[in-house]
């Protein structure tokens, strides 16, 4: 079995990754292992995961369902505890949730009883900024995401895309070192998702933030990421860390470009390896119903 050829990095792309790796390490994950204790016994969700993320890097994590990518990001956020290994944020071990790591969830998780402005102020108030200062900063963030007009609206009055923009602003208002995003756009319709992707890249370019982005959408991963961490399932392990050769700034028209195609082929090969016989069991040949009169192609 041979995997499709992987595009060699062009000299300028290679130089870009050299510069990226020369930057400070923000996030360091070392031999991370997570076991779940269930009645049926122990399940190994993550096994010996190691990688580093540099300052202002955009890292996407992809993998088949059940590879533990959500568990991984929850451990990075401090919402779950690892069984073994370490997570270091700027050299300091992560022991629980904290304002130095912002998180955007798949569900919108805006506080429904607070206005848009108060939602963005929430983190600042929790970290003991004064009310007036929090309000000033919240309004700045709302202007940045283009929702200044909606400062006094309640979340239920916003569309899904707008809610997720507020959630991003709320996470960024705390000025975290790193922004963790767990399939943040997967509940949005295709058009909104595409706009949100361009939009996120724009925010990322404007401010000093490192992003770790979980997705199951390979196009999304290639479009957004500097590097893509590919996990495989049962147990969740690192399959490969791919450096995306698609040049920046990114544009949707690059989806048809050769670098994009090559990267996607490589990801497909890693995540959906050619069938080894089990596919025939999972998708048996469908019998043709005798009462169907017309032949269809």
């Amino acid at each position: 079995m041979t995997l499709p050829g992987y595009l060699d990095l062009a000299p300028d792309v290679r130089a870009r990754f050299e510069r990226l790796k020369a930057r400070d390490v923000i996030l360091q994950v070392e031999h991370l292992t997570k076991q779940f204790e269930t009645r049926a016994g122990r399940t190994l969700a993550l096994n010996d995961i190691s990688f580093t993320t540099h300052r202002r890097e955009f890292l996407c994590i992809v993998g088949p369902s059940g590879c533990g990518k959500s568990t991984l990001v929850r451990i990075l956020a401090g919402l779950d505890r690892q069984s073994a290994g370490a997570v270091l944020l700027a050299g300091k071990p992560v022991t629980g949730p904290g304002a130095d790591r912002g998180m955007v969830f798949q569900g919108y998780t805006l506080f429904p009883w607070l206005t848009v402005k108060r939602n963005v102020m929430f983190g600042l108030e929790m970290n003991n900024h004064g009310r007036a200062e929090a309000e000033r900063e919240a309004l700045q963030w709302l202007d940045l995401i283009g929702l200044g007009r909606y400062a006094e609206a309640y979340p239920h009055q916003l569309s899904g895309g707008m809610k997720q923009r507020v959630a991003i602003a709320r996470a960024l208002a705390n000025q975290p070192r790193i922004l963790l995003m767990d399939e943040p756009f997967s509940a949005l319709d295709a058009q909104t998702r595409a706009r949100m992707q361009s939009y996120l890249l724009e925010i990322w370019r404007k401010i000093d933030i490192t992003i770790v982005f979980i997705t199951h959408d390979l196009d999304e991963a290639i479009f957004l990421a500097d590097r893509i961490l590919v996990l495989k399932a049962n147990p969740g392990e690192v399959a490969e860390l791919i450096e995306v050769p698609v040049p920046r700034p990114r544009h949707p028209r690059q989806f048809a470009g050769p670098e994009f195609r090559a990267t996607k082929d490589r990801l497909e090969a890693l995540i959906h390896p050619p069938a080894l016989g089990d596919d025939a069991d999972a998708y048996p040949e469908m019998p043709r119903l005798t009462n169907v009169a017309d032949e269809v192609e």
Binding site: L79, P97, A99, F105, M126, N127, N174
Partner: peptide, 22 residues
């Protein structure tokens, strides 16, 4: 609650600022 945790909410304010209003 998890969103509030990632925004730096401590246990004391979790009850008054998140659980009760919610």
């Amino acid at each position: 609650v998890e969103a509030a945790l990632t925004l730096g909410t401590d246990q004391r304010r979790m009850l008054t600022r998140v659980v009760i209003p919610a």
